[in-house]
């Protein structure tokens, strides 16, 4: 009881302190923020109409690549932890915890939904620099489409080791694609196409990057999903 009281007092103090620190931030304005520069110059600099994608795929490409790397590490960790199929004795695995009985409705609907989800995922990825979306979001949709395919019995289960290898290759190609601009532009992690080209042509770099990120994220999340499903069964 005393412990909880002390904790409450501590968090109350932190709360009031943080509130006092946030008061001057409340009327922060865009004019003094660096965001105004992005809004003014983003399209000319990066050829991306979606300014969030402009930051993610050009100004701060370095961060995005290693953010994708963190997902790779997480997927590899899940893969590593589920590698051994030996379980310790303390919890007996229920013998008939087999696959739940698939209802016909779910089967039929997932069969219909599967190609549309793939299409929607690729749409979100490819148009990431024109409309809301991008590699990360589209990759999650692709991965959920793969998850739905778990319900389709004819489909063979995913080979997660192969997927992990694919993800590593995609991550390395992302890194090397980011470094191409070191040769052509003299600065790493930016668009490798020269600035005098038409924005419609320079867009190619963004679409390529979005595709790579999307495939990488989808393979990483598919590894996590399938391993969780296997672990649960």
């Amino acid at each position: 009881m005393i412990k909880k009281l002390v904790l409450l007092l501590m968090f109350g103090f932190i709360f009031i302190y943080a509130l006092a620190a946030t008061v001057p931030l409340a009327d922060i304005s865009l004019e003094t923020s660096i965001g105004q520069t992005v809004i003014d110059r983003g399209y000319d600099d990066t050829a991306s109409k979606n300014l969030v994608a402009a930051i993610l795929l050009d100004y701060r490409l370095f961060d995005s690549i290693f953010e994708a790397g963190i997902l790779l590490i997480s997927a590899a960790g899940v893969l590593y932890m589920t590698q051994s199929s030996e379980y310790s004795k303390s919890v007996p695995r229920s013998k008939e915890a087999t696959a739940p009985k698939d209802s016909d409705t779910i089967l039929a609907v997932s069969r219909i939904l599967y190609p549309f989800m793939l299409l929607f995922g690729f749409y979100i990825i490819v148009f990431g620099d024109l409309s809301p979306g991008g590699g990360f979001q589209g990759g999650v949709i692709l991965a959920t489409a793969r998850l739905i395919s778990v319900y389709i019995p004819e489909k063979a289960s995913e080979n997660t080791d192969r997927l992990n290898r694919l993800e590593k290759i995609l991550f390395l190609s992302l890194l090397s694609l980011g470094l191409v601009s070191l040769v052509t532009q003299g600065a790493p992690f930016t668009n490798f196409l020269p600035r005098y080209l038409d924005p419609e042509i320079r867009r190619f770099f963004l679409v390529l990057l979005n595709l790579l990120i999307g495939l990488k994220v989808s393979s990483g999340l598919t590894i996590i999903f399938t391993r969780f499903v296997k672990e649960g069964r």
């Binding site: 809004i39 963190i70 997480s74």
Partner: peptide, 23 residues
């Protein structure tokens, strides 16, 4: 338009949060 920078930062947070939760 609103400031795009916090939105770009928060995408990073969401992805990392998902990774940490899965692990």
């Amino acid at each position: 338009p609103v400031d795009p920078i916090p939105q770009a930062l928060m995408i990073t947070t969401i992805v990392i949060g998902a990774s940490v939760t899965a692990l």
